[in-house]
């Protein structure tokens, strides 16, 4: 069977990016187009686009590091768009064999991390508002990211003694403290930590140069200093 070829405008629509972005990605080698013999028009295999758009971590980290464009289907500009897409993911998970009960904890973890991005950055987004929210239920993977202030800057308003990203992320996951004090908030990430420790869900979370990796059996909560410094927050949930 011959693979279905899409012209550049169809590929742009498929991925939710502009024609110029596709031309740029072609020139840089990020997503190389096909050219028919002797022709100059760009074509794309639908299957290649599907594989390309499954690179969730790549898109999310390039976006928060360099502001790189990504397929629009992963962008939630507002909290209500995020909630709608989360409900859609929930529907998919409920139908997945083996997840009839566990789905609610996975949605809770993703929901808290995503909602945190909106709650702590409202009115303060440094440039692009909203979050990246991508998932692949076949690969059992969810990626969330934001280009917000990050945990340290958010918490240092109420805990000025916090000096490092590592200390700030530790506080966010272990203490009942909110970046929006005196509002009484800040229990979400604590529950995320507890759910991950007890359940068959893995988490990678990073903000600034702080990293949390909770993976496999006998998970422990530990915050370490990573090689990279990221803007805002980036989380990968695997189950």
């Amino acid at each position: 069977m011959i693979d279905k070829l899409l012209i550049i405008s169809q590929a742009a629509e498929y991925l939710g990016v502009s024609l110029n972005t596709l031309r740029r990605w072609d020139e840089s080698g990020k997503l190389v187009a096909i050219r028919k013999e002797g022709g100059t028009h760009r074509y794309y295999r639908e299957k290649d686009l599907e594989v390309f758009s499954s690179e969730l971590m790549g898109f999310a980290s390039e976006w928060i590091k360099n502001g790189a464009e990504f397929p629009a289907t992963f962008y939630c500009a507002t909290s209500s768009i995020f909630n709608a897409r989360l409900t859609k993911m929930e529907n998919g998970l409920i139908q997945k064999p083996g997840f009839e009960k566990l789905y609610s904890l996975i949605v809770l973890v993703a929901g808290e991390i995503g909602d945190n991005s909106f709650a702590h950055n409202i009115g303060k987004w440094p440039d692009t508002p909203g979050i990246f929210f991508g998932y692949n239920l076949e690969e059992r993977k969810i990626v969330l990211a934001d280009r917000g202030l990050g945990i340290l800057e958010t918490l240092s308003k109420v805990r000025p003694e916090l000096k490092s990203h590592v200390d700030a992320v530790k506080v966010a996951f272990t203490e009942f403290v909110s970046g929006r004090a005196p509002e009484k908030r800040g229990n979400g990430l604590k529950l995320v930590r507890e759910v991950i420790i007890e359940g068959p869900i893995d988490l990678f979370y990073t903000s600034g140069d702080a990293e949390v990796r909770m993976k496999g059996l006998d998970k422990v909560f530990r915050v370490t200093r990573g090689q990279n410094t990221v803007r805002g927050c980036l989380a990968k949930i695997e189950f």
Binding site: E90, I94, Y103, S104, V107, L108, G111, E112, D115, N116, A119, K184, R185, N187, G188, L191
Partner: peptide, 14 residues
């Protein structure tokens, strides 16, 4: 209820 998060519940049940 399919999923209840602590953020929603903290604004309602607390």
């Amino acid at each position: 209820i399919l999923t209840l998060s602590p953020s929603w519940a903290d604004e309602f049940l607390t």
